[in-house]
Design a protein around this nucleic acid. Structure first.
Lengths: 218, 218
DNA sequence: TCAGGATGTGAATTAGTGCTCACATTATTA
DNA sequence: TAATAATGTGAGCACTAATTCACATCCTGA
């Protein structure tokens, strides 16, 4: 029950276009109705094709979602690479949080379905794996940055903080999503404030001075 | 498709016992498998009865869950009444958060299914309503307390804070639930720390007066 | 005691959804 | 052009899960 290669790979332009429209349809439906209400029939209808065509190229529904998430990961990685810099981390964790939240918000606004995936969880099979990877794509660079900028904080504490930060960000951005624009902004503002205070309480000890990081302790 | 009284009310002791065992079974299954995987057949089997009997007294599956949640609300109200005092709120919001988190943790530990309901969401119909009421049962007394103790904070800001606090508490306690005991404790500790800092940043302006309060914070 | 209401039962009904398959159509290649 | 491979289709199968219903059994009041 996995994403094996038991299915054909699209060789002609025709089928490649079809696969793309299937993925687009899936992403849009994810945005509109969420993962739980996502059905293969709806995907086919929205993509203007038949269920059979989906199964021509995907072993099962989950594989379609997994592929969509894979696309999201690429976009996210691109943005985070650009935005999460050691320099920023050393400046202040507060700014780091602001940038992270804004990046995620921007991506969610520009990418149908992204919010639904980032926010939600409890997919099964390979989609679940991809969603976990997407989370790692955020946690790991962030964690590395903090490790470099604040080497006096233990690995375990840093891991705990990352858990808190991601989980909190997920719910609050998800909660914001159902509110009007103004409330959304306010919720994000509170999120930034809270995470800023929290992270600062763990990561502001060593004065950001020399660019040279000290060796780890504990 | 609601919780109306289209179904019989249990009049004999026999049926009252049966209804109780149905509710117990539902609560336990909620704890074991969660709401999504909860089936009427499983409830009937666990309660040692037949599906028909469930529908003798409940119009649908959702109504069973709604009734379970109603029970949780009663327990929660009892505890919160006892624990959330104006005195405490005036002492410090930090302590207030600690007490709230500990109370919820205690209830979750003692009541099968409570965590699953408090944490989760996205039930449908009347169960959804009850779950929202349960949330209000937390937010409202807490909000009232803060309004009394810190009247300089605007209603809107207070409402925003309550949203942040409840959502954050829900996810992190839910995330903690799948970890080992020690990690659970650590996550709760971080939750308290974060909420404490956050609330203090909004609610610590007016110095506590008439009430004698000792503060033994770190 | 016994009639009628209350309760108990579980096979059958209903309905939604993932997925397969036999067949149709289109593209590529020799 | 004709053979072969690639692709497209959608009715129908398989499975699950909520809910109903006709019938059986139990309880209570007169």
């Amino acid at each position: 029950m996995m994403d094996n290669t038991k299915r054909r790979r699209p060789r002609q332009k025709r089928s490649q276009r079809r696969v793309a429209s299937i993925l687009d349809a899936a992403a849009e439906l994810l945005e509109e109705v969420g993962y739980r209400a996502l059905t293969t029939n709806a995907i086919a209808a929205k993509a203007g094709t038949s269920i059979g065509s989906i199964y021509q190229f995907f072993p099962n529904k989950n594989a379609v979602v997994a592929e969509v998430v894979r696309g999201f990961r690429n976009q996210l990685d691109l943005i985070l690479d650009q935005v999460l810099t050691v320099d920023l981390a050393r400046q202040s964790v507060t700014r780091l949080v602001d940038v992270l939240v804004d990046s995620l918000e921007g991506l969610a606004a520009a990418t149908p379905g992204f919010g639904s995936i980032f926010t939600g969880s409890k997919f099964g099979g390979s989609a679940e794996e991809q969603a976990l990877e997407l989370e790692k794509d955020i946690i790991e660079p962030l964690s590395d940055l903090l490790a470099q900028a604040y080497p006096n904080v233990s690995d375990e504490q840093r891991r705990l903080c990352m858990l808190v930060v991601t989980e909190t960000t997920k719910v609050l951005m998800s909660r914001a999503a159902v509110e009007d624009r103004e409330t959304q902004r306010k919720i994000r503002q509170e999120l930034k404030r809270m995470l800023g205070l929290y992270l600062a309480s763990h990561f502001e000890a060593p004065r950001r001075r020399g660019t040279r990081s000290r060796k780890s302790k504990k």
